[in-house]
Computed example of a mutant assay.
Amino acid sequence: MSAGFAIPVVHSASDLRAITEPMRAQGATVGLVPTMGYLHEGHQSLVIRSAAENDLTVVSIFVNPLQFAEGEDYSIYPRDLQRDHEMCAEVGAGLVFAPSAEEMYAKAPITSVAVQGFNAVLEGRFRPTHFDGVSTVVAKLFAMLGPDRAYFGEKDYQQLVIIRRMAFDLSFSVEVVGCPTLRESDGLAMSSRNVYLTASERSAATVLWRSLQAGREVVMAGNRDPDEVEAVMAAVIAAEPKASTDYAAVVHADTLERPEVLNGELRLLMAARIGQARLIDNIGVSCE
């Protein structure tokens, strides 16, 4: 356990359980907010939600090497535990779990969790090992802590769908709670990777939100052709010289499948590269 913090910070699963298990034995509920750190107001909104719904909120801070492929930004991903701790404490977290890679993976892992199908579309096409790494580390966190509820932002919508299915299939007795995306005043989704953007790139990055809004407007106007909706979204990105599109997609919100004709609860999702940053965003829309 680290000293000098307003709330406890533990680095091992044994210390984590030493604090949480006696509380649970007395009937306390535990909420988990899994993060990779370098927190922002979006993460804080998850903590606030958890603190309102549970007796103890645990925030995990771990930059998980399994979800980064070779050549991605694992080595430069921003880290600042002191800052993260202060942000957790000010919004009601009761405990920070900040393990090392050696604590999480004492031996090179030969077991992984893969949510087949869901892990191969959208982000999975561009980051084929990413979601297996996410599912594996979240499964380990669920096993270590046994939370009653776990909170994930809708900004990473595909991740949220995958974690819900993983928890269901593996019979984890945890409620996976999705929370709305927090945005800057100009619509840019809050993300730890926004720190990579230069001033001009930061201005250009609002194109993701504009693209999603354009796609939603087309659907709400009655267009039910996914090709046409995706083309509208992609055209907005293409008009921004600093941005390049990885994908612009419209899918069923619960299955991530692309419908032939748009209907029901849908999700518009996109990924774009701006400078050093690769940004993702999404928005929901309903149609009959």
Results as ranks from 00 to 15, higher is better:
A3V: 08
I7C: 04
V10G: 07
V10A: 11
V10C: 09
S12H: 13
A13L: 05
S14W: 06
R17T: 10
I19A: 00
T20L: 15
A25W: 00
A25L: 07
G27P: 08
G27I: 10
A28Q: 11
A28D: 12
V30L: 15
V30K: 09
L32I: 03
V33S: 01
V33D: 07
P34S: 13
G37L: 14
G37Q: 14
Y38T: 04
Y38R: 10
H40Q: 06
E41K: 09
E41W: 01
G42A: 08
G42P: 06
H43L: 13
I48G: 00
S50F: 04
N54Y: 01
D55T: 03
V59F: 09
S60R: 09
N64H: 10
P65C: 04
P65L: 04
Q67G: 03
E70V: 11
E70S: 11
Y74E: 15
Y74G: 09
Y74H: 14
Y77Q: 02
Y77N: 07
D80P: 06
L81I: 14
L81M: 14
Q82R: 13
R83A: 13
R83G: 07
D84P: 05
V91S: 08
G92S: 08
G94W: 09
L95V: 05
L95M: 12
F97M: 06
P99Y: 15
P99C: 14
E102M: 09
Y105G: 04
K107A: 13
S112M: 13
V113R: 10
V115L: 06
V115F: 02
Q116N: 09
F118P: 00
F118W: 11
L122M: 15
R127Y: 06
T129M: 15
V134G: 00
K140F: 02
L141F: 12
L141M: 13
A143D: 14
L145R: 06
G146R: 14
R149M: 10
F152R: 01
Q158Y: 03
Q159A: 08
L160R: 00
I163E: 10
R164E: 13
R164Y: 08
R165I: 04
R165H: 10
R165L: 10
M166S: 02
M166V: 07
F168W: 05
D169N: 12
D169I: 03
D169Q: 14
D169F: 02
S171A: 14
F172D: 09
V176N: 08
V177R: 05
P180C: 04
P180S: 15
T181M: 02
S185N: 08
L188W: 02
A189R: 03
M190C: 05
R193V: 03
T198Q: 02
A199N: 08
S200E: 15
E201V: 01
E201L: 05
R202F: 05
S203Y: 09
L208Y: 11
Q213I: 01
G215H: 08
G215T: 06
R216W: 00
R216D: 00
A221S: 12
A221V: 01
G222D: 13
E230R: 08
A238T: 10
A238N: 13
E240M: 12
E240Q: 14
S244N: 03
T245G: 05
D246I: 05
Y247T: 04
V251E: 11
H252L: 14
L256P: 04
P259I: 07
V261F: 13
L262G: 00
N263T: 11
G264T: 04
R267H: 01
L269S: 12
L269I: 12
M270W: 02
A272S: 15
R273D: 02
I280F: 06
N282C: 14
N282L: 06
C287S: 05
